[in-house]
């Protein structure tokens, strides 16, 4: 893609790492491990989410586990283990501790689910788990709703990163409550804010970035596209576009029409009419 303005590379810092890409990508639901690898590469993402599940005895290939993990390790990118499936702070903390040992990172995407139907995070258990994990030296990436007060509680217990949902996990509905997301952004300019969950198409990611969010985390929107690799490229561009738009400063909305073409010298207009 041609760049008409030579800008400094867009680097940013999160969890002690300096990165170029503001797109965080999941590793699940792809048609094949090779497709996953290509999609991650094309997306430019430097953080990929992973998880832990029960391993059968004597089985080193269950659920594509080891092949998948070998691919991720070979890519030289940061891994962000999640605590998906946890329904209490205790389960999430134990999962995080296990993930730290297996994946060799103190990063954890903290997910404590409070409702099985819409996979809404449990704010009380999430805050409780975050506080304990931070004391144990974890860099916590908490998945939360767009509730300002929950974000405030997470910040109070030491979270430097907060990840409000756009909408329900896997729904593809985009940003349900942009005003709430703006309020969180304005309240916490010093925190790293990532939109996590609900992104369905590239324009949703652009919108999130235009709101001033530091990044977006998504999985289904790419993995479930008809062509995941092409969609990964689309999201790469969409995130860059949104960030550039935010940095450029979006014009203020107006409640009235305002012509963009100069009115001076408008043809066929006569001062003496009427």
């Amino acid at each position: 893609m041609t760049k008409f303005i030579e800008t400094q590379p867009d680097t940013w810092e999160i969890g002690g790492k300096t990165l170029n890409s503001r797109l965080l990508i999941g590793s699940a639901l792809y048609p094949s491990p090779a497709n996953m690898e290509n999609a991650i590469k094309i997306s430019g993402a430097q953080i990929v989410t992973v998880s832990l599940r029960r391993q059968a005895a004597g089985d080193t290939t269950s659920k594509g586990g080891h092949q998948f993990w070998d691919i991720i390790k070979s890519m030289g990118i940061e891994v962000l283990p999640n605590t998906a499936g946890s329904h209490s702070a205790k389960e999430a903390i134990t999962t995080a501790q296990m993930a730290r040992e297996v994946f060799g990172t103190n990063w954890v995407k903290l997910e404590v689910i409070g409702d099985q139907y819409n996979l809404q995070p449990d704010p009380f258990e999430t805050v409780k788990a975050a506080e304990i994990l931070i004391k144990e030296g974890f860099e916590v990436f908490p998945y939360t709703t767009d509730d300002l007060v929950v974000a405030k509680r997470l910040a109070e217990v030491g979270c430097r990163i907060i990840m409000p949902w756009g909408s329900m996990i896997g729904s593809g509905k985009g940003l349900m409550n942009p005003d709430n997301l703006v309020a969180i952004r304005k309240q916490f300019p010093e925190l790293k804010l990532i939109i996590d969950a609900g992104i369905g198409k590239p324009s949703h990611a652009t919108q999130a970035m235009e709101l001033g969010y530091d990044g977006v985390l998504l999985n289904s929107a790419i993995a479930l596209a008809q062509d995941p690799v092409k969609m990964a490229d689309a999201f790469r561009v969409a995130v860059e576009a949104g960030r550039l738009g935010y940095e450029a400063g979006v014009m203020k909305e107006r409640e009235f029409a305002s012509p963009s073409t100069p009115t001076v010298g408008t043809p066929f207009w006569h001062q003496f009419e009427d």
């Binding site: 999941g26 590793s27 699940a28 639901l29 792809y30 996953m36 989410t49 992973v50 998880s51 832990l52 599940r53 029960r54 391993q55 269950s62 659920k63 594509g64 586990g65 080891h66 998948f68 993990w69 991720i72 283990p81 999640n82 998906a84 999962t95 296990m98 297996v102 994946f103 996990i169 896997g170 999985n219 289904s220």
Partner: peptide
């Protein structure tokens, strides 16, 4: 006893 191994995740 829970024994967990890496899998894909979102």
């Amino acid at each position: 006893i829970e024994i967990l191994a890496p899998v894909q995740g979102g």
